[in-house]
């Protein structure tokens, strides 16, 4: 069984990000870039399935600028077999990424697409479902546990009220949630060693125009400063005074 894992290059999720003075862009203060943490969970899951003999090939793919190579190299170091960068300088929204990926996935014809439930920069939570919709594949979002048997995939997924177990025929698309696994640590030598693995860059002749775009960014309003109280009695009184109890 072959798996495709799309990954996104995002600014370090722990970096302080704020709007630029003119509100036209975001300033992350020179923070480094990472694989979107949910996509990293997807890479880890695919590699574990390969190690367990369930998957035979794990292909990672990214859509964007040349710098995405850095994240693809890391995915190769985790254990993916090969990487493809669908290269473009154009801005992309989730529908455009899903469209570009759908053509790639259709050509690769894998059994499974595994990807993060959302990216930590735009927090959209859209691309996976849109990709499944375009391919007309079954989907299981928010996966907490997977079992890729020969005839079907069984996915335990997080829901608003607990969890549920779904069975999906192949080919299918699964998006990953936090509890699925803890990605392994990759030291620098591992990343350098992965240099011998194939990474192919394919320039995209054109990409679909975005269906939405950001007009401006503003900082989220800060809450007015609060106060520390000295005793529980004072705290209880202050809560009652605010009329919320």
């Amino acid at each position: 069984m072959k798996a495709i894992v799309p990954i996104k290059r995002v600014v370090d999720p722990y970096a302080k990000v704020k709007p630029t003075a003119d509100g036209a862009g975001l300033d992350s203060g020179g923070a480094k870039f990472e694989i979107n943490p949910f996509d990293e969970i997807a890479v880890e899951e695919a590699v574990r399935q390969k190690e367990a003999g369930r998957f035979t090939e794990v292909v990672v793919v990214s859509v964007g600028k040349g710098e995405c190579e850095e994240q693809l190299r890391k995915a190769l170091a985790i254990g993916a077999d090969r990487a493809v960068l669908l290269e473009t300088q154009e801005p992309l929204d989730s529908p455009a990424v899903a469209k570009v990926l759908s053509e790639f996935v259709a050509a690769e014809a894998p059994h499974v697409v595994l990807m993060g439930k959302q990216a930590t920069d735009d927090d959209n939570n859209q691309a996976g479902q849109m990709l499944a919709a375009i391919l007309d594949w079954p989907q299981a979002t928010f996966a907490a546990k997977t079992d890729f048997a020969a005839d079907k995939a069984t996915v335990v997924r997080e829901t608003d009220s607990g969890e549920e177990t779904l069975e999906l025929p192949y080919p299918c698309l699964v998006t990953t949630d936090l509890r699925l696994n803890e990605p392994r640590y990759i030291a620098l030598p591992g990343i350098i060693k992965a240099r011998s693995k194939p990474l192919e860059k394919r320039p995209l002749a054109s990409v679909p125009a975005p269906k939405s775009s950001v007009v401006s960014f503003a900082p989220a309003p800060a809450r007015p400063p609060g106060r520390k109280v000295g005793s529980v009695a004072e705290l209880a009184q202050a809560i009652k005074d605010r009329g919320v109890f």
Binding site: P13, V17, D121, D123, S212, V215, S216, F217, A218, P219
Partner: peptide
């Protein structure tokens, strides 16, 4: 909201 709610984005749908 974006980036863990630290930023509010004004977003325009183009279609």
């Amino acid at each position: 909201p974006m980036v863990a709610g630290s930023v509010l984005a004004r977003v325009k749908a183009e279609s």
